[in-house]
Structure formats: C-alpha cells, structure tokens
C-alpha cells in the first residue's frame, strides 16, 4: 500500500492553513494569515480571524492542490482541526471540511491541534521516523503546553500548560507597553539586540518551591508582564531614559528561561532524552538558542521542525491524519463539533 494522500485543514487561530501530505512526505503547505488585520488591534480579534478564514479557505485549498500537483479526487482522506482554539474560527474549518469530505465521498478525520504540532515532526526532510517517547513544548500566542508523547495517535499526556496568558500573548503585551507594534515576538527580538539579558531580574512564574508542588510543569506569564510594566513605569516616572534593549532582552530571557527550565525538568523526571519544539514562539531567536544550549548541556536531543511547520499550519494536521489513516483508524463520524477546549488526550475527535 502506498502512503495515504491526505489534505489537512487548520483554522484554530488566525492562520488559514491547508496542507497536503503523502504519508510523511510534505507536498503543500499553504498558509493565509490574517495577522495584518489584527495588527492595529494589538492582538488576535476572534471575529476578524473567523471572517478571514471564510474568505481564505477556498483560495487556499485551490493553491494547495496546485502546489502539490494533485486533484481532490486523488485524496485518500481529509483531516481537520476540531480543537482546541478559537470556537468561531474552528467552526469555519470544521464546516468546510465536512462539506468537502461529503462532496468527495472521502473519509474525514477530526484531529487535535496540539497533537498536530507534534505530528509536524514526521514531515522531516531526512525522512527519519519520529522518535518516541518525547517531551513536546508547544508555545504560541494561543497556547503554552508541555506534553509527554508516548505514541502520536494513542498516548499523549498533558504535563502542564499556562494558567493565564500564553507566552506569545506575553510577548505581544510587553511589546505594546514598550511602544512596539504587533506581533510582539519579532519586535522584542529586534529590540533586544545588544541588550543585557541579565540587566533586570524579572520574575520567573511558578518556579518557587511552593508553586512547584502544584504547578511543576505549568506556566504563568501575567505576573511577568505586570513586573515589566511596573519597571517601565518607574523608569519613565523618574525621567530616566528607558534602556529598551536591556528591558527587551531581560524580559525575553525570563520567558525563555522558564520555558526551557520546565521542559528540561520534564525530560529528566520522565527519563525522556528528547525535546520537540512547536508553535509560533519557536521563531524567537533566544528561545531556540537557549533550547539548544540547555539540551546540549543535559544530553537531550532537541528537535525543531522548520518554522513553516512550527507556526499553525494545515500540513501538520494532514500529517497527523495520515498517521491515523495508516494505522487503520476509523474516520470520525460527521457529528463532531468545534471544541475550543479539546483536551490533548483526545487525539482524534
């Protein structure tokens, strides 16, 4: 049997992602982002994102088919993100996927967005298989989650997640209070050039001994954001010039430090010498750099998919769908909905 040809549809946040894979081979990864429309609001506006999905989905489908050089008839299955994510945005993809699958008489697989981020790793160019178990650190503007993946389609455990803001959200909010535009990640990166990451010791959320008992693998970034705001206000009130590069570098260091400290701890605690990164925050230079440093020091193999497969995309959803097809899983029934809080233990809805 040749590897299944699967089309994936992803609309959980502000990217309309359509991907096409043949088993573990990437054929197309089309992403239409509404990021520019959100820029003037300083963050993702769910209704703006959902409207953009509705307009982008058919053109993105057509472009993906063109790029992959396949026709809809040739597909073996369709996969779609059914959660977690923004409800109104998810619904566009869910409805579109159902109608497309029915019109083509193809099986449909409703899959978990977070597990999809892990699934992106099967699309590695060297064609090597994903090595399991692995710890996965998934960080974006919508989620900050630490997973233990023993089996991509059977056994994923949520170790921890953010209890308030996502890390990407913290970047956006801090950028705004520093007077930098949206999205905050690349802006903070730019502002931090030449800054001293140790200049200001900003708090690392949920890392104190008493917090670790209950929240060993959970994250919190709202206290950090407030600490940066307070520091900046005091500086401005005193009339001193704001050391922008130091603030940006120190803030970024605090985020990267807490992300990697907890991820490495998870690797140690579970005896898993592998760490996989996913999500848009992986684009952040310091997060990648610190991950490489800490993993090397701890003897942990670090895997970072190419950036276009780290940010939200349809290829990772197609890849996870292809794993389900290859394993002989039954398609999802037609009555699944958009579940904004779908737990990672539900890999296929």
């Amino acid at each position: 049997m040749t590897a299944p040809l699967v089309l994936g549809i992803e609309t959980s946040c502000d990217e309309t992602g359509i991907g096409i894979v043949r088993g573990q081979q990437l054929l197309a990864n089309v992403i239409a982002s509404s990021m520019d429309e959100h820029a003037r609001y300083g963050g993702v506006v769910p209704e703006v994102a959902a409207r953009a999905h509705l307009e982008a989905i058919v053109p993105a489908l057509e472009e993906a088919l063109r790029t992959a050089g396949v026709t809809l008839d040739e597909l073996d299955a369709i996969a779609v993100t059914s959660g977690p994510g923004l409800a109104g945005a998810l619904m566009v993809g869910v409805a579109a996927a159902k109608a497309l699958a029915i019109s083509l008489d193809k099986p449909l697989y409703a899959v978990n967005h977070l597990v999809g981020h892990v699934g992106a790793d099967v699309l590695r160019e060297d064609g090597s298989d994903i090595e399991l178990p692995t710890i996965a650190l998934l960080v974006s503007g919508g989620h900050t989650s630490l997973l233990l993946v023993r089996d991509l389609i059977d056994d994923v455990e949520l170790l921890g997640e953010t209890i308030d803001d996502a890390a990407g959200e913290a970047f956006d909010k801090v950028a705004r209070l520093l007077g930098l535009p949206y999205p905050g990640g690349p802006q903070i990166d730019r502002a931090a050039v030449g800054g001293d990451p140790a200049a200001i010791r900003f708090p690392r959320g949920l890392t104190h001994q008493k917090d670790l008992e209950k929240h060993r693998y959970d994250f919190s970034f709202s206290g950090l954001k407030t600490a940066v705001a307070r520091w900046v206000e005091q500086k401005r009130d005193s009339g001193d010039e704001l050391p922008l590069a130091d603030v940006a570098a120190s803030f970024r260091e605090a985020v990267a430090d807490v992300l990697l400290t907890k991820a490495i701890a998870a690797c140690h605690d579970h005896g898993v010498p592998r760490l996989l990164l996913g999500g848009g925050v992986v684009a952040n230079a310091r997060v990648r750099e610190l991950a490489a440093e800490r993993c090397a020091a701890a003897g942990i193999e670090l895997r970072v998919p190419p950036l276009s497969l780290c940010t939200d995309n349809g290829a990772m959803i197609a890849a996870l769908g292809a794993q389900l097809v290859a394993a002989g899983r039954r398609p999802s029934t037609l009555d699944f909905g958009a579940d904004s809080t779908l737990p990672v233990t539900v890999i296929q809805a």
């Binding site: 959902a50 509705l54 058919v58 809809l72 619904m91 566009v92 409805a95 579109a96």
Partner: peptide
C-alpha cells in the same frame, strides 16, 4: 448572526469546490 452564518457559507463553498 456571524458565527452560525459562516458555517453554512463555508460548507456551501467547499461542497461546491469538491463537486
């Protein structure tokens, strides 16, 4: 109301594409 409205339009558009 937008959330529901989009479901039908999205479905009509992709069904039409597939068919």
């Amino acid at each position: 109301p937008f959330t529901g409205l989009r479901v039908g339009i999205a479905a009509a558009r992709t069904f039409a594409l597939g068919a």
